[in-house]
């Protein structure tokens, strides 16, 4: 027993050094000023960034919902395919992830630019050009494109375990497609849905690369704001820590909301 436990020691050291200690530091800086004296100033001053916080949350929610709507039918189709086709298709889903995140987002930049590939193509037919880059739509697109696999994989993993005969049983008992979806498929996929939402929402709400590259200056997100405090001109790591802390609290709140929601739904049915 002792032996097994000692195997966890490296991980424990890792956790303390790179998760617990930094957290403590973040909390410390968030509640101190430049001289190291205790203050609530940092937290209080966040009020002026409300629009950025609201925009971040909204865009992350939209991206998560779009991912879910796209991934759900796709994952279901995937899970009903031949086993050999399934592994091929999951590989295709993963394929973009083999490329660097920055490169993928750069690719979208050159596609969406005012004289980018899409606008030039449309120009051939005399349509456009459309303003696509530097819009909140482009930011959502970037989030969906980058994080969709994180929604598909947990959903697919859960759905593979749903026996086709359970769906047939529902149809047999009088359930049309709509009822099968809401009374059987969604409840049985709930674990995958929660995992998928977490895995898309959390990186979406804290991203700064995507908004910087595809959103231009007008779509500043919390991630960008935090980055500015540490690397930008406004260099203020106390304020940056306060922002990080609030972001963490927001994420935690959202997450506990989704878990509570599923528990409630499970209790209901």
């Amino acid at each position: 027993m002792f032996k097994k436990r000692s195997l966890a020691a490296p991980y424990l050291v890792w956790m303390v050094a790179f998760i617990a200690v930094p957290l403590v530091i973040v909390v410390y800086f968030a509640f101190t000023d430049k001289t190291g004296a205790f203050t609530l100033e940092n937290i209080m001053s966040l009020g002026m960034y409300t629009t950025v916080f609201v925009r971040s949350i909204l865009l992350a929610i939209v991206a998560t919902v779009v991912c879910l709507v796209l991934a759900f039918p796709l994952s279901y189709m995937l899970s009903r395919m031949h086993t050999s086709t399934q592994s091929m298709m999951t590989m295709l889903v993963m394929l973009p992830m083999w490329m660097n995140f920055l490169l993928r987002t750069y690719a979208w930049m050159s596609l969406l630019e005012n004289n980018g590939l899409i606008n030039r193509f449309l120009g051939v037919f005399g349509i456009g050009p459309f303003q696509m880059i530097n819009t909140s739509g482009a930011v959502v697109l970037g989030m969906v494109y980058n994080y969709l696999p994180y929604m598909i994989l947990p959903l697919y993993t859960i759905m593979v375990k749903i026996d086709s005969s359970v769906i047939e049983a529902a149809q047999d008992l009088g359930a049309n497609m709509f009822s099968v979806l809401f009374r059987v498929l969604i409840p049985l996929s709930m674990d995958g849905i929660t995992t998928g939402i977490t895995m898309v929402f959390v990186p979406s709400i804290s991203t700064f690369i995507i908004s910087r590259m595809l959103g231009g200056g007008s779509n500043l997100l919390i991630g960008d704001l935090i980055e500015l405090q540490f690397l930008g001109n406004s260099y203020n790591y106390n304020l940056g820590s306060a922002m990080s802390l609030v972001l963490m609290v927001i994420v935690l709140m959202c997450m506990s909301f989704t878990t509570a929601d599923t528990e409630e739904m499970e209790a209901m049915v």
Binding site: S165, V166, A169, Q171, D172, L173, N176, L188, M190, E266
Partner: peptide, 21 residues
């Protein structure tokens, strides 16, 4: 006619009970 409109019901080989209910 699709299954859900037929007046027959089935007992499946592996029972196929709804695990969430």
């Amino acid at each position: 006619l699709p299954p859900y409109k037929r007046h027959v019901n089935t007992v499946f080989q592996k029972y196929a009970l709804f695990p969430h209910l």
